[in-house]
């Protein structure tokens, strides 16, 4: 699977990371190098093998369906890069 500059632009867009047009070729080359190396996994026969999702060491726990935290409005807002009163701000999203 070769990763072209259009794919690089698509990934950057999905990841919401701004990239300059003159960076796409370098990034494509770098990512191709890494994924070329990763393709060694094609040698491994995984038929009938279940995927490992986490280490499976902790037993899922139930707890009472009650509020355990809250009333921390000022804490939650304390690191906001921009705020108005008790609100986070963003550029206008609805015309």
């Amino acid at each position: 699977m070769s990763l072209d500059t259009a794919t690089v632009r698509r990934i950057a867009r999905l990841a919401r990371i701004g990239i300059e047009e003159n960076e796409t070729e370098g990034l494509a080359r770098e990512l191709n190098g890494i994924f070329g190396w990763i393709e060694q996994l094609d040698e491994v026969d995984v038929s009938g093998v279940a995927p490992m999702i986490g280490t499976g060491l902790a037993t899922p726990r139930m707890r009472e369906d009650v509020v355990t935290d809250g009333d921390r409005r000022d804490d939650v807002l304390s690191n906001a890069p921009d705020r108005v009163d008790a609100f986070f701000t963003v550029p206008k999203v609805v015309e």
Partner: peptide, 18 residues
Amino acid sequence: GVRFGARVAGGTLDELYE
């Protein structure tokens, strides 16, 4: 760039993220 951490402004929400 909305709830915590550094923010670099943008004209739209997506531009702000990017």
